[in-house]
Write a protein that binds this DNA or RNA. Structure first.
Length: 102
DNA sequence: GGTGTGACGAACA
DNA sequence: CTGTTCGCCACAC
């Protein structure tokens, strides 16, 4: 069973992911720091990987720091980002143009 | 309880 | 630009 503090940590993390505006993206490390967990990028990736398929969390807006779509469902992520107005080229995004916080 | 691994990231050659 | 090395941490074996 997850600890209360662990649950709280995940909640804070997902809250931060939820705050990424439509049409913008962020990186694992940036989200981790914004949520109050510096240097926990890998943990962020792990938590997102365990989200249910029907979640409302915009996990597709979280990319690698260089703009790479690194998730296993990169097709879905690419599709959703494109529909949000984010230009995706070769499974990559121009981080400098869409990064949040800007 | 050591070891390998991963939706990471930064520094460096 | 690519590849290497290291730090990081949860987890499976």
């Amino acid at each position: 069973m997850p600890t209360d503090s662990e649950q709280e940590a995940r909640d804070r993390l997902l809250l931060t992911v939820n705050s990424i505006p439509r049409g913008r993206v962020s990186s694992f490390g940036r989200i981790a720091e914004a949520a109050g967990f510096p240097r926990r990028a890998r943990w962020v990736g792990r938590v997102l990987s365990q989200l249910p398929a029907d979640t409302s969390i915009p996990w597709h807006r979280v990319l690698g720091h260089n703009g790479d779509i690194t998730c296993p469902r990169n097709d879905i992520a690419s599709d959703r980002l494109t529909k949000e107005g984010v230009a995706v080229h070769d499974r990559k995004v121009d981080m400098r143009k869409y990064v949040w916080p800007g």
